[in-house]
Design a protein around this nucleic acid. Structure first.
Lengths: 210, 210
DNA sequence: TGTAATCTTTACCAATTGATCAAATTTTTC
DNA sequence: GAAAAATTTGATCAATTGGTAAAGATTACA
């Protein structure tokens, strides 16, 4: 055959596997920093070590790459929240949730920035998922309200509680350069995540009153 | 004269005043959503209700507009932190700071997103300001450590304390569409900022223990 | 009111960018 | 080891984009 597109090929070959992975990795690098419109196929191709037409042999369009990355991301992004269980101890459940989100900010900062880029742009590609998100959050908020009624959690607005967890943990991915600039070279090692975890646990449990 | 650039004109005329303001406002709209590379001069010109060459009569380049906006932003962005005084009551000082930052997120969300866009991109245009930022934060961290030593503030890492205030307040500007999606139409009015303020004060003062 | 200065428009340019195609090359399969 | 399938390359395209040149329209001011 003259020119089969990679995706139209009978089976996924070894080369396809490899190259597609390399492209997605490179694209995540580029998209997470420059956003969709700010990224070029050339940039991604170069980062993946191949020519532009070669890249386009594996993915028809720039958007196809982006869509795939966003899809993958959304798949796992909410897992930590899903894991929060009504049966556990309220404060431990919340602390575990914070810890898991912070680990994600540490281990997958590019995915975090990709997500933030998308939200900043007004979430044009993920309207549907936003409504799934609402259902999930409402469900967990209900659990929290139950805990509050039982006197096992301080009374407060559960939606804003969840926002504050998202915000404080995601901050270490999105504002990484600012965090490093402020902490200075000495404290910018991986240890900053342990400091953050310690601080956040204290904040969420006891607040700042002496 | 054939074609004087607006900026090179003897005095700022009424029209210059007006048009430049309109351009900057439109550019803030566009840049804050699409980032620098993702925004086009045409887009900004259209949003400002003028032709592209007309816009370029007032600002030589796209970058000139962006630089000016970023400069303005940085000028006022840190004012609330600067106001935090060692003489005040620690907890009130911190609560005021949170309140002021939240007001900025409410009243200047576009500026907030412009800043976040810049940081996400690795802060390429504001390296110098990042180092000024460190000095200011270090100074305030020192004040906080003093408060802790005196037993007037819970012992914790003051840098991460500041991060958590930035994160929780800025969240309402950057993730606005997500916040609205989660809260639903009923609770997405301006009242959400009062709910946030109430929640955050409670969190930072007392934490979540019942 | 006339004219010099300022402002706006129309037409245009060169570079970049997303994407295609056919030919050349490499890999897999039998 | 040859045929078939898959991969890579180089040339190319049309649209977009940042920016310019110059002529025409408007405004301010004597």
């Amino acid at each position: 055959m003259a020119k089969p597109r990679a995706a139209e090929t009978r089976k996924r070959t070894r080369i396809q596997q490899e190259k597609e992975d390399r492209i997605l990795d490179a694209a995540l690098d580029v998209f997470s920093v420059h956003g969709f419109r700010g990224s070029t196929i050339d940039q991604i191709a170069k980062a993946a070590g191949m020519s532009k037409p070669n890249l386009l042999y594996y993915f028809r369009t720039k958007e196809a790459i982006h869509r795939l990355l966003i899809g993958r991301l959304l798949d796992t992004w909410l897992d930590p929240l899903r894991e929060m269980s009504a049966d556990g101890d309220p404060l431990s459940e919340i602390c575990s949730y914070i810890r898991r989100k912070l680990e994600m900010a540490r281990d997958y900062p590019r995915e975090g920035r990709l997500f933030t880029n998308e939200i900043l742009r007004g979430a044009p590609h993920i309207q549907e998922e936003m409504s799934d998100l609402k259902s999930l959050v409402d469900e967990k908020a209900k659990i929290m309200r139950g805990w509050m009624k039982d006197g096992r959690l301080a009374k407060c607005d559960p939606h804003h509680l969840i926002f504050s967890i998202w915000a404080t943990t995601q901050h270490y991915a999105d504002f990484d350069v600012q965090v490093r600039a402020v902490l200075g070279p000495a404290k910018s090692g991986e240890g900053r995540f342990e400091d953050a975890a310690r601080y956040l646990e204290k904040l969420f449990l006891d607040g700042l009153k002496p």
